[in-house]
């Protein structure tokens, strides 16, 4: 029983990470109609910025380091909106913008290698250890992931439902011409959305440091699986990304009990293919 609970918690924690990845790229998709092919590099960048620069480089306490990392990534998101997303999405075909984000990703990963070096490292005291609930042992990292991700997903819902900027973002994703006729500064609003997405990316990067360490490949797998979870839950629909992510996390962890763990990573993609064949609109796809 306690093994079951422990596995479930681990699965849900990973699921929340996938959900956040789903949310992070869905935000940009909804605002611009573009897939951000550099989204896993945004995650990577956030993690390196936090661990490499603010914690190890400048010796800031974690809370302050998190704040700075999130802020830096927000600004990075805004700048990349004005340099890449906004201008390229105006061109006659989306192909330019797609290539643009791919190249941005290459530039980012090479910069990481240049700035922080190719060797993996980790933070020894950051979210390490475990907590006992009776006989159930839960790692601190997983617990924090669940709490933080729940707060972020709930916070985003409130943001989109109640704030003026959040509502304006929904308008922009539904109809850009109409949004501009309401007086919304559409390019600025899109930049803000991309900044928000970059904040989510940074948070993901920071949260997974205790699980994957800080290294160049730390975000590639969660990037792919997060993408899968968005499709499984219902493409372009935020609650879908959450449902899809958690489903994926749980299926994956229990699946790895039944099959050799080297195939664990395949599981999500098998699930993705099944959904694409049987229910391409995703679990919540028709609920809009």
């Amino acid at each position: 029983m306690q093994v079951f609970v422990q596995l479930l918690i681990t699965g849900i924690a990973m699921g929340f990470i996938y959900a956040l990845v789903g949310i992070e790229y869905t935000l940009i998709w909804n605002a611009t109609g573009l897939l951000n092919f550099s989204h896993d590099k945004f995650i990577l960048f956030g993690a390196y910025m936090f661990a490499g620069t603010y914690v190890l480089g400048l010796g800031l306490p974690p809370v302050l380091a998190i704040l700075f990392a999130v802020l830096t990534m927000f600004l990075f998101g805004i700048v990349s909106a004005f340099v890449i997303f906004n201008p390229l999405s105006k061109l006659s075909t989306n192909l330019f913008a797609v290539i643009g984000t791919v190249i941005l990703g290459r530039i980012m990963i090479e910069s990481v290698r240049l700035i922080w070096g190719p060797l993996p490292f980790t933070l020894d005291n950051f979210l390490r250890g475990s907590i006992h609930f009776g006989s159930v042992v839960v790692s601190k990292a997983h617990l924090v992931i669940i709490v933080v991700c729940s707060l972020i997903t709930a916070g985003l819902q409130v943001f989109f439902k109640t704030t003026k900027t959040g509502k304006a973002m929904r308008c922009v994703s539904e109809n850009k011409t109409a949004a501009s006729l309401m007086g919304i500064n559409v390019p600025m609003n899109i930049a803000f959305t991309i900044g928000l997405s970059a904040i989510v990316c940074a948070t993901i990067g920071i949260l997974v440091i205790p699980i994957f360490n800080v290294e160049l490949q730390m975000s590639s797998m969660i990037g792919l699986k997060g993408f899968a979870s968005g499709v499984i839950g219902g493409f372009g629909y935020l609650p879908g990304a959450i449902v899809g992510g958690i489903l994926l996390g749980v299926v994956e962890i229990f699946g790895s009990m039944l099959i050799p763990s080297v195939y664990k990573d395949c599981l999500s993609f098998v699930l993705l293919i099944i959904f694409l064949l049987v229910r391409p609109s995703g679990i919540l796809g028709n609920k809009r």
């Binding site: 509502k167 308008c171 539904e174 109809n175 011409t177």
Partner: peptide, 10 residues
Amino acid sequence: PEGREIFPNM
């Protein structure tokens, strides 16, 4: 505008 252009999901 012509053609309403409302926000359908709001």
